[in-house]
Design a protein around this nucleic acid. Structure first.
Lengths: 139, 139
DNA sequence: CTATATGCAAATGCTTTGCAAATCC
DNA sequence: GGATTTGCAAAGCATTTGCATATAG
């Protein structure tokens, strides 16, 4: 999605368009792989030295609630990664050593999830699928 | 697995069998659903009031490294759940409100994970699949 | 005995929150 | 001008760690 479309979306929802928000969107758009909050901070600070980490978190959360961004939960206490929603359901291949996350183009889920949810009286809300391994660099 | 078999396993690996360890195994064995570390603590304290949370964590981690237990990572910062390894690959259905986790008897993964890993030069180590939803109690 | 395990307290890392000052519309 | 955002500082969780003491084998 283009940056101005995203900006427009925020405005429509009644959010103010601050330079910090623009800068965060910019970083998300330019990142080759979904960055962690701290990585967003570091990159935003190159152009916007005074932004704070909590502002980054607040905005990443806001974008997520808006459905504009997704969270990739890593294992244990590791910091989550954030990616702009691409409008296409997908999952990730994550390196256990360096944490790099690669988008996959398939979802392994079939009807059995619906059946299982029904069987246990659950209303299904979604699912998480993450493949873990070691990338070529981390061997 | 029976408790004494587990105890035996620890001994074989050179770990000492302390009353705390026995109590933790007991709680894991008796839990209807995979407990969080804090839940383990509360339950162990019923019979063993002086155990500390860090001992619980240390032992849950030890059991996990040993392959005797598995960790179920919940979303965001939510505390992980621990279950004894049942020797059978499976996944979970987790309630987003109360956090209850139900073991499922299927794995949706097919060969595409291997293909994807290969394509990106990854050595596959495993995967996480969790279905999320709301249980009948939480609506 | 001696290495391992425990309890305590404090530290860590990620993320959130309260509040006064700044700023977008 | 008025509500929303920001930065700061501090708090909140889950989890880990250092260290002196206790304990299993």
């Amino acid at each position: 999605m283009e940056k101005e479309i995203l900006v427009q979306k925020l405005r429509e929802k009644g959010y103010k368009v601050t330079p910090q928000r623009r800068a965060i969107l910019e970083v998300l758009l330019q990142s080759k792989q979904p960055p962690k909050a701290l990585e967003v901070l570091v990159n935003v600070r190159k152009n916007f030295p005074d932004i704070s980490l909590d502002t980054v978190y607040r905005n990443l959360n806001m974008l997520t609630e808006l459905g504009v961004a997704n969270v990739i939960n890593l294992r244990g206490g590791e910091a989550s990664r954030f990616e702009l929603e691409r409008g296409q359901h997908h999952h990730h291949l994550v390196c256990l050593k360096c944490g790099i996350a690669i988008c996959l183009d398939f979802c392994p889920m079939d009807d059995r999830d619906v059946a299982a949810a029904e069987k246990h009286g659950f209303v299904l809300a979604g699912h998480v699928v993450e493949l873990y391994g070691y990338c070529s660099r981390c061997g």
